[in-house]
Every structure is written in structure tokens, then in C-alpha cells.
Design a protein around this nucleic acid. Structure first.
Length: 882
RNA sequence: GGGUGCUUAGCUCAGUUGGGAGAGCACCUGCCUUACAAGCAGGUGGUCGGCGGUUCAAGUCCGUUAGCACCCACCA
């Protein structure tokens, strides 16, 4: 058989993905007797293309899904795509702009149509890319948040919450993005610390007698001021309360009011009140019955309320002009630098404007309580655990959720207005007004926040509100894998909605991973150009290499640094596996059949590799169960590369090449095939393609009935084969060999030269182990003759003549140099003896034993005993060595 | 202003209940040893951020301090 010398992933990966798809291996078979395992994909945006963050996120999910599938659970990885309201509309609006059009030119229906067209042609590219990564999602269940079923769920939920009075509509200050032209929820605003200015502005009293000074970071909003507030306890202004000042530029007479909210120590202790453009001012305005005045339109342009001087200017130009004008009129008392957090739109980074407008909200507090409970009770767990606190803190301070968006792409709010003024909220489109019977109904123009469909993901994807088999079987799901950035936006809300609408938790474990940064620790971004295209990487290195590297390189729950050097590691590992496979196939080709049961003769290396295989199997299972992916990756790499390839494979060669002993030959063949085959199973979740490729060509040579590795059983450890005694014996051999190699190197003996070695060991049993396995020394350390004993003479060191026989004196006690070990133990002995003496005298001291509490004395006695035992052990060991 | 996390070899990180400081990469040396030079073998390198405490014993527990990162927050 010809096997490539270098592993070529490209063709093989396509072949196996198709094989899995064609055989329906990604689709679980519902079996009521078995416990299902389910992961919901965090639906990528329909506009999205695969980036390194997705690679990490989806690799984690696929690893777990493949592991669980192999352990026998009917396993579902439910995929889908999010319609991403603002993001998608932005993309299509950009296309329109190229044609010189705006959305208003084409109109609502046409725009929505274009967005659907766009989706058909270009959307969901990321799905194809996930397939290249090896994602074993059940594509027959793929969902889109704008699917009919999901839309139905959205309406049902909306109406339900409305009827429970958990959805309300009203005029409040919300976060407004003047570029996207829509409201945003608090969680969609990203705050960034910036150095701004604090302008101190003089407002003269109406009678012209004097003035008060207010401080503001947004002077343009002064045009909408309706009052000036001071703290009622502030002595400076006590007598001013109730007086009025004249608002510059506008000439409006506004009162000085008293409100506890005002911080006397900040600025001048005087606050301008702009209820239409600041949330606090809005609340104060409500408390004092002040009418808000909007001075901007929805594009952030000053309106007629801003006065003739400023109308038509955008907010930032207006700010400049106001400051200029104030300076001219000598009303600007002071300008200070000021650090404050400025909100930006999470979609387009435009500075957010707090803005008074009519919006829909979800009352969150009542939904939050059960969601707090399930986390407190441990029914939903976070990994790493620390995120629990973050979640609970947010939930306990939860605020109402603004869900209406003034865009066109999304689920339109199921509310209609009749000309009679009646509002109808309904799952089905109403035809007539139930109050007046009119058919002149107008649906609310707004659409719902994208997250209003995402938060239903755990059950809307399974067909809710119908009572489907999926819903019954797969919910609650098990693992949610996502980044901490959307705990509030998504994770928390899914817990709330799923509890409210199904009475179940959505998932029992939330695994939160970090970000993928570049080598310099910067975020990957298009503008920096530091984000490699994963598809290119897959084309060059293969998906297995990419997957393994990402997992191997990423510490649990922390950010990781990616560079191409990282992925080379995975590529090299794949190649290593491939060559081990190549060696084994080439070696066993000529060897007929497998050994019969009574032919199997296991020697030390065989017993050892089986022991290690089972130990590793045990640990791999533990790592996957505990969601410790990188530990699993490290463990398996170490085992396959170091233990199996570097040690076992080398040691098997003598028997494999020796045709004179067919029994031993067949035994070695069997162990090689068996360990390789088991290793492929163990590694499959991490590197699915190469393992399937190798396993498929291997399985005919072993008694295996499973048809594909992807659905083969994950190995379970056989504890009987884990033998610490065997491990220790092998360890001794390995350490001796390393020692000899080290000394050879130090003495400059060429690698191929055979040498004679004398070894001094501490105990007779060690001598026996070495002498029983002289072949290993010959093979791996080029030892010709070995003299081994507890009393071997130290030969005269002769480095000069290294032509034929060299004797190496190798003082060993198990693993370490005897002399330095004795020195170390002597030091330890002295210290322990001293410690023991100190404790003893303390215990003999009457004033201590009589005065100290009994517990303390007992503790001291315990310690005495502990130190005494340690000292005894140390002395025994020392005697042994001397 | 609150909260969380991190600080161990040049880099990225392990280090489970306190008891002889580890891995990978990088670097140096020697090897094309018939699976693999994307490899093999050997090696250099650390006052475990600082200070203080508990303990016979601290990378590990406690306190404190510094630096970094992220999250939350309506002080104009």
C-alpha cells in the first residue's frame, strides 16, 4: 500500500464530510430510552463570515457534540442563523446607496423584499464555512430567526407578555442612534471613556440681578432646558429656589427647583434640567411636572425648538457654535477637561443620544426572579464559575428592555391602531376593530429588537408553541458555548423566556470562552488587518490542524493569542499521526493475521502502553465531561506523540522486523494496531477528519463492527489494565535510557556508536528490571553490554579514548543521582530534626500546655507526629541509599 | 465609582487537598538512525509581581500594595 509521506488534508476532509452527511450521522435518532445531548448554536448573523472567534466557538461545540455522540447519547447540535435586524438592513442599505438610493426611495415593502433576496444570494455564507470546519450540526433542522415557525413564536410571546402586562408602551428616554435611526436597548450601547469638556455656563436671573452657573458636558442640550436644579440642603442656593432664570439664546424663563438628586459637591452644585435629552433630567422633570422639550430630530439635527440661531445644524456643529456664542456673550465661566463614559452604537459606533420617544418595553423584573432562582439552585451552571456573580448582579439590577426598533427589517410589532384610537395587540392580523368595527387599521411601524427573537431560540427552534417531539425530547439542552459579551443580551434572556414559556431551563451549563487576539494582544479587526481568514488557514493547514491548534492554544475561559505559528503546531501533530499510521501500515503489511489469544505474549512495553492507554482514556473522559478541552488536547497529544510514537513505536521495531519469532511479531502488530485504533477514537472529537481517515483503513484489520468512527463508541477505561507497578518499571527504564543518552551526548559519543555501560542501582529489584529489558537499552541507547548491580565499581573516567568500549558510570536510585539525593535528604533530615526538637520542647513546656487551648495543643501534637513520621521516612531512605 | 480576572522560563500557559518548580513554542548542540527534518536525541533558562502574616513547611492559605485586562454604573 502506498501512503503519502506527508498528510494532505484537503481532499480527505471534503470526502469525509460528505460521507457523514450522506449517511445522516449528524441527525440524532430519537430514542426515549436514551438520554439526549443537545447544544444550541449561537446563531451567527446572516451577514456574518467566519472569523477566528467563530472558529474557537464552534470548534468547542463540535468537540463536545462529537464526544457525546460517541458516548452513545442521541446528540443534536441545532444550527441556525440570526436575521440580525440592524446589521442586515445596513448591508442592504449600503447596496442601495451604490445605486444612489435610500431606503425611503424604495419604500418599506421593496426594502424587505431586497433583504430577502440578499439573504438568498449572499446570506448565510458562514454556514458553508462551518461545514469546512467540520461542524457536525444537524443541518436538516437548520433554522432562521425569520422562519414562519419562529415568527409565530415571536408573536405568541409578544401577545402573551402584553396580556400579562409585562409589555408596555410609553414615552421614555431611550438610547437613540442618529445614524441607524432607531432606538437601542441599554445593552446595545457600548460605553467608552473619553476626555471631554465640562462647560460652566451662566444663566442670568430674570430680573438681571445676578446669575447661576451650571456645568454640562453637552451644551447643545441647554436649548431644551426647562429648569435649573439645586440640592434643597445646599446653603448656597437656598434662597434662590423658586426664582427664575433666563435661558440664553432662547429667552425662556425657567425656574430654579430643589431636588435631592443633585450632588452638592459636583461642579457648581447647579444642574440644568433637560428632560427630553437626559434620563435623570427626565425623571426629575416628571417629579416636578415639567414639560420636556425636544430640540433635535431623529437624525441628531437641531429642530425649530432650538431657536433660529441653531435650527438645522447637526448636534456637534451646534455644540461648537453654542460655545462660541456663549463666549462672545461672556456667559461661559469656565471650561474644564472631564473624563466621562460616552455611549456608542454597538452596530455603527455613532455617539448615542439619550432621546425622548415613544417605545415598547418589556417589564423584566418579574421574569428575572425565576431566572435568578435556577442559577442559585445550581440548575444552570456557568463555567468558569465566576460568571455566575456577573449574571446574578445584572439580574438583580435588571432594567426594563426597550424592544422596539425604528427599522424595517425584523419582526413587525403585532399591534394595530384603529382610526377610533383603539389599539389591538393580536397574534393574527386583525381585519376589523373590535371596538368600532372599522377596517381602517394601521399596523405599528416598528419592528422588534433582533434579540426578541434570539431570546426564544431554545424553544422556538424546536417548534414551540406546537407540542413537538423535539421540544419534548431535546429541551432542556445541555451546553451553551458563547462569549461573555452576550451574557446579558442573550444568555440571561434565554433563561428568562424559556422558564416563562416552557417551564424548563434552556440549558444546564453555560461555557464562556475568551476572545481570540492577535500576537500583540489586540482584538482581531478588519481595520487593523490582523485577522486571518480561517478559510485560507483551512485550505493550507487543514481543519483538523486549525481545530486542534485553537483548542490546544486556548486556556480555559481566557483570551488566546493567535498567530500562524500556533497552527503549525496542529499541522505538525497531524503529520506526526499520519506518519505513525504510515509506519504501522507498512510494518504490518507482511505480517499475517492477528495473534490467537494464547499467542499473545506481552512484554514490559506492551503492558506499559496498555496501562497508559487506559489511564489516558480515563482522563480524557474526565476532561471532556468537565468541559476541559485544552487539557484533553494536551493529554492526547502527549500520549500519542511522546509515549506511543517516541517510546512504544521505537521499542516495537525489534519484534516487528524479526521474522524469526512470529508470535512476538504478531503480538507487537496487534498492540500497535489496537493502540492506534483506540487513539483515533480518543482523538476524534478534536481532529475528526484525519482520525476517520485512518480509522476507516484500520478497522478491517481488527474485529470492529461499527461503520464509522463518528458514531463509534468512545473508549472507556479498563481499570484492570492500569498498572502502577508496570508504569513504575517502565519509568525506570526510560529514566535510565535518558540518562545514558545524556551522558553519551556530554561525552561526545556519536549517536550510532555502541557502548558498554555500567549502572549502579540502589536496590536489587531495579537491577532485575534493567536486566530483564536489556533489549530496550540496546535499541534506544545503543548499549552493547550492560553491567548492572548495587555495588558496581566506579570506573576511572576516560574521555580520551572513545573508540570502542566506553564505560559509563550511572549512579541511580530509581531516577536521581545518588550523591545529590543523599545531600538533599541529609539537609532535609537536619531541618526536620530541628523542627521536631522545637515542637517537642514546646510540648514539654508547662506554661504552654496548661495555658493554650486544648485544640491548639492537640494541633501541635498532630504536627509533632507528622514531622516525626516524615523524619523517620527520610532516615530509612537515607540508610537505604548509603 | 463599583465588580471580576490575571501576574510562574524570552513568549503562551499547567501546577487538583500546602511537603523535591513543569509543558509547548523559541533558543543552543548533535543527528538526513529504512514512519515522520512538519522529524529524532540532548541541553541552557525561573529570587513563582512587591511587602507582611499563618505554618515545622507557602507558587499554593490570609492580609496588603502595584501593574495589566475586562465588565458594570443615570453624577450633570
Amino acid at each position: 500500500m502506498e501512503i503519502d509521506k506527508i498528510y494532505e488534508p484537503q481532499t480527505k476532509e471534503k470526502k469525509w464530510y460528505k460521507f457523514w452527511m450522506d449517511n445522516g450521522h449528524f441527525t440524532p435518532k430519537i430514542d426515549p430510552d436514551k438520554k439526549p445531548y443537545t447544544i444550541l448554536i449561537p446563531p451567527p448573523n446572516v451577514t456574518g463570515i467566519l472569523h477566528m472567534g467563530h472558529v474557537l466557538n464552534n470548534t468547542y461545540q463540535d468537540v463536545m457534540v462529537r464526544y457525546q455522540r460517541m458516548t452513545g447519547h442521541p446528540t443534536l447540535w441545532l444550527p441556525g442563523v440570526d436575521h440580525a435586524g440592524i446589521a442586515t438592513q445596513n448591508v442592504v442599505e449600503k447596496e442601495l446607496a451604490k445605486e444612489g438610493l435610500t431606503r425611503f426611495d424604495v419604500g418599506r415593502d421593496k426594502l424587505v423584499e431586497r433583504i430577502w433576496e440578499w439573504k438568498e444570494q449572499k446570506g448565510g455564507r458562514i454556514i458553508e464555512q462551518l461545514k469546512q470546519l467540520g461542524a457536525s450540526c444537524d443541518w436538516s433542522r437548520e433554522r432562521y430567526t425569520m422562519d414562519d415557525v419562529l415568527s409565530k413564536a415571536v408573536r405568541k410571546v409578544f401577545v402573551h407578555l402584553y396580556e400579562k402586562d409585562l409589555i408596555y408602551k410609553g414615552n421614555y428616554i431611550i438610547n437613540w442612534c442618529p445614524r441607524c435611526n432607531t432606538a437601542l436597548s441599554n445593552d446595545e450601547v457600548e460605553h467608552e471613556d473619553e476626555t471631554g469638556k465640562l462647560w460652566h455656563i451662566c444663566y442670568p436671573f430674570s430680573d438681571g440681578s445676578d446669575f447661576v452657573t451650571v456645568a454640562t458636558t453637552r451644551p447643545e442640550t441647554m436649548l431644551g432646558d426647562v429648569a435649573v436644579a439645586v440640592n434643597p440642603n445646599d446653603e448656597r442656593y437656598k434662597d434662590k429656589i423658586g426664582q427664575t432664570v433666563l435661558l440664553p439664546f432662547i429667552g425662556r424663563e425657567i425656574p430654579i427647583i430643589a431636588d435631592e438628586y443633585v450632588d452638592m459637591t459636583f461642579g457648581t452644585g447647579c444642574v440644568k434640567i433637560t428632560p427630553a435629552h437626559d434620563p435623570n433630567d427626565f425623571m426629575m422633570g416628571q417629579r416636578h411636572g415639567l414639560e420636556p422639550i425636544l430640540v433635535m430630530d431623529d437624525h441628531g439635527v437641531m429642530n425649530e425648538n432650538a431657536g433660529p440661531l441653531f435650527v438645522g445644524m447637526n448636534r456637534f456643529d451646534c455644540r461648537k457654535k453654542i460655545v462660541e456664542q456663549l463666549q462672545q456673550q461672556r456667559l461661559l465661566a469656565k471650561i474644564e477637561d472631564h473624563q466621562h463614559a460616552v455611549g456608542h452604537c454597538y452596530r455603527c459606533a455613532t455617539v448615542i443620544e439619550p432621546y425622548l420617544s415613544d417605545q415598547w418595553f418589556v417589564r423584566m423584573k418579574p421574569l428575572g426572579e425565576p431566572a435568578i432562582d435556577v442559577v442559585n439552585k445550581g440548575e444552570v451552571k456557568f463555567i468558569p464559575e465566576r460568571w455566575t456573580k456577573v449574571y446574578l448582579h445584572w439580574m438583580e439590577n435588571i432594567r426594563d428592555w426597550c424592544i422596539s426598533r425604528q427599522i424595517w427589517w425584523g419582526h413587525r410589532i403585532p399591534a394595530w391602531y384603529c382610526e377610533c384610537g383603539e389599539m389591538i395587540v393580536s397574534e393574527e392580523d386583525p381585519t376589523t376593530c373590535p371596538k368600532c368595527g372599522s377596517d381602517k387599521l394601521r399596523q405599528d411601524e416598528d419592528v422588534l429588537d433582533t434579540w426578541f427573537s434570539s431570546w426564544l431560540w431554545p424553544f422556538s427552534t424546536m417548534g414551540w408553541p406546537e407540542k413537538t417531539e423535539d421540544l419534548e425530547y431535546f429541551l432542556p439542552t445541555n451546553l451553551l458555548v458563547t462569549a461573555p459579551g452576550i451574557i446579558y443580551l442573550w444568555v440571561a434572556r434565554m433563561i428568562m423566556s424559556t422558564l416563562e414559556f416552557t417551564g424548563k431551563i434552556p440549558f444546564d451549563t453555560v461555557f464562556l470562552h475568551g476572545m481570540v487576539l492577535d500576537e500583540q494582544g489586540r482584538k482581531m479587526s478588519k481595520s487593523l488587518g490582523n485577522s486571518p481568514d480561517p478559510i485560507d488557514l483551512i485550505a493550507i493547514y487543514g481543519a483538523d490542524a486549525l481545530r486542534f491548534s485553537m483548542i490546544f492554544n486556548t486556556p480555559r475561559g481566557q483570551d488566546s493569542y493567535f498567530s500562524e505559528g500556533v497552527i503549525e503546531h496542529g499541522r505538525n501533530f497531524a503529520n506526526k499521526i499520519w506518519n505513525a499510521y504510515r509506519f504501522i501500515m507498512m510494518s504490518v503489511e507482511k505480517i499475517e493475521g492477528l495473534p490467537a489469544d494464547d499467542e499473545i505474549e506481552l512484554e514490559l512495553a506492551d503492558k506499559w502502553i496498555l496501562s497508559r492507554l487506559n489511564q489516558v482514556t480515563k482522563e480524557a473522559n474526565e476532561h471532556f465531561e468537565a468541559v476541559r478541552f485544552n487539557d484533553a488536547a494536551q493529554l492526547l497529544q502527549e500520549f500519542i506523540w511522546k509515549e506511543f510514537c517516541s517510546w512504544y513505536l521505537e521499542l516495537s521495531k525489534d519484534r516487528i522486523y524479526n521474522d524469526d519469532n512470529p508470535k512476538a511479531q504478531r503480538t507487537a502488530k496487534y498492540i500497535l494496531l489496537h493502540v492506534l485504533e483506540q487513539s483515533m477514537r480518543l482523538l476524534h472529537p478534536l481532529m475528526p477528519f484525519i482520525t476517520e481517515e485512518i480509522w476507516q483503513s484500520l478497522k478491517g484489520m481488527l474485529p470492529i463492527e461499527e461503520e464509522a468512527l463518528i458514531i463509534a463508541n468512545y473508549p472507556q477505561a479498563d481499570d484492570c489494565l492500569i498498572d502502577a507497578n508496570v508504569d513504575a518499571k517502565m519509568q525506570l527504564v526510560q529514566d535510565c535510557i535518558s540518562c545514558i543518552r545524556n551522558l553519551r551526548k556530554q561525552m561526545g559519543i556519536s549517536p550510532g556508536k555502541m557502548v558498554n555501560v555500567s549502572i549502579k542501582v540502589a536496590r536489587g529489584e531495579q537491577k532485575a528490571i534493567i536486566e530483564d529489558n536489556l533489549g530496550y537499552f540496546s535499541k534506544l541507547a545503543k548499549v552493547e553490554e550492560m553491567t548492572c548491580g548495587t555495588d558496581v565499581e566506579r570506573p576511572k573516567p576516560s574521555l580520551a579514548d572513545v573508540v570502542t568500549d566506553i564505560e559509563i558510570y550511572l549512579p541511580l536510585t530509581g531516577l536521581v543521582d545518588i550523591d545529590s539525593e543523599i545531600a538533599r535528604l541529609e539537609k532535609q533530615e537536619a531541618k526536620l530534626a530541628q523542627d521536631l526538637g522545637r515542637i517537642e520542647s514546646k510540648l514539654n513546656n508547662e506554661s504552654f500546655t496548661s495555658r493554650a487551648p486544648q485544640e491548639v495543643v492537640d494541633k501541635e501534637k498532630e504536627k509533632y507526629e507528622e514531622v516525626r513520621v516524615t523524619l523517620e521516612k527520610t532516615r530509612t531512605l537515607l540508610d537505604d541509599l548509603r
